[in-house]
């Protein structure tokens, strides 16, 4: 150990858990991914202390790029306070000691599952997506050897068959999330299960977009200002979902809304899925119609009912 060595993280683990060799290996994969936008790069995904499917790919990507001066934001479903976001943020606090934030505009790295923040990301920021299934062609071809070939030869016709079928059956393209995109006019890519509402944010985004799939052992990337086009037909152009409601808390009419069942008779309220965006708007004085009377916090904090003396 010498003075150049980074401070040892908790329990004698290396900074950001992974050893430096592994981080270098992942950064090499990331560099390759950035060089070939949308192309999936196999990497030696490690077995992490969090479960596969819980974001091990995103965690490894973040661990490989995070430095001591970074500020990390972690969201799940757009919110900073969902259990899995809390858990991953806690993991990085323990393993790196870096600053964390809930503010999108103050983060240098945003790790996300299922959403892109409403606040536009800027140059210099990195957004890391957790990816369950990276292969966009998987629905029609379960074999890796075959999908590799289809990507290599840009044989993407069959993907349009799926969209064609949607229109036949439903009169519209029914895919609502993980909506396939063409990156830089060459590679078909899964944007991870974000709602298609978020797809347009990916197009020519000033921030670097990194995608990590731990279980499937793939990394891919979209460099800043790269074209990301959602697949569609000339006579059935891509559209995003719209709400008839505004956010009950901040009154926003242009953000993605969560629907919350507020009572036993099935009444609902709609609020921003992006908790930071909603909070910022309220701080600026925006106000919605308010939550229904009597809606409050229910006991869901994991404590044993009647066992902890509370």
């Amino acid at each position: 150990m010498n003075a150049m060595t980074e401070p040892v993280a908790e329990d004698g683990y290396n900074f950001a858990f992974l050893d430096e060799q592994t981080k270098r290996m992942i950064r090499r994969a990331i560099l390759k991914a950035v060089a070939i936008p949308g192309h999936q790069i196999p990497f030696g995904s490690r077995e992490m202390p969090l479960s596969y499917g819980w974001g091990t790919g995103g965690i490894q990507v973040t661990a490989a790029v995070i430095g001591r001066d970074d500020t990390l934001k972690v969201i799940d479903q757009g919110a900073d306070d969902t259990t899995n976001a809390v858990s991953i943020r806690g993991f990085f606090r323990r393993m790196t000691g870096v600053a964390t934030t809930e503010r999108t505009d103050q983060a240098t790295i945003v790790q996300t599952r299922h959403r892109i923040p409403e606040t536009r990301l800027a140059e210099g920021q990195v957004i890391v997506y957790q990816v369950p299934i990276p292969e966009p062609l998987r629905w029609l071809e379960p074999r890796e050897t075959e999908t590799c070939k289809m990507h290599g030869l840009a044989e993407y016709g069959a993907m349009h068959v799926k969209l064609y079928e949607d229109i036949v059956r439903y009169g519209r393209i029914e895919t609502a999330y993980d909506y396939p995109v063409m990156v830089n006019g060459r590679y078909l890519m899964r944007p991870s299960p974000i709602p298609k509402f978020d797809n347009p944010k990916m197009d020519r985004m000033p921030a670097l977009q990194l995608f990590g799939a731990g279980r499937e052992k793939r990394i891919y990337a979209v460099p800043p200002y790269t074209s990301v086009k959602s697949l569609d037909f000339e006579d059935h152009p891509f559209e995003v979902e719209r709400w008839e409601h505004c956010c009950a808390l901040c009154g926003s009419n242009d953000s993605f809304l969560d629907e919350i069942v507020v009572d036993d008779s099935g009444n609902r309220a709609f609020v921003c899925s992006d908790t930071d965006y909603c909070g910022e708007r309220r701080a600026q004085g925006h106000q919605g119609a308010g939550m229904p009377a009597g809606y409050g916090q229910a006991a869901a904090d994991g404590a044993a009912p009647g066992r902890k003396g509370d």
Partner: peptide, 15 residues
């Protein structure tokens, strides 16, 4: 969809 697949593979994009 079955008949159209080859055309889509050739780049036809008008439903």
């Amino acid at each position: 969809g079955n008949v159209g697949e080859r055309l889509m593979a050739l780049g036809h994009r008008h439903y």
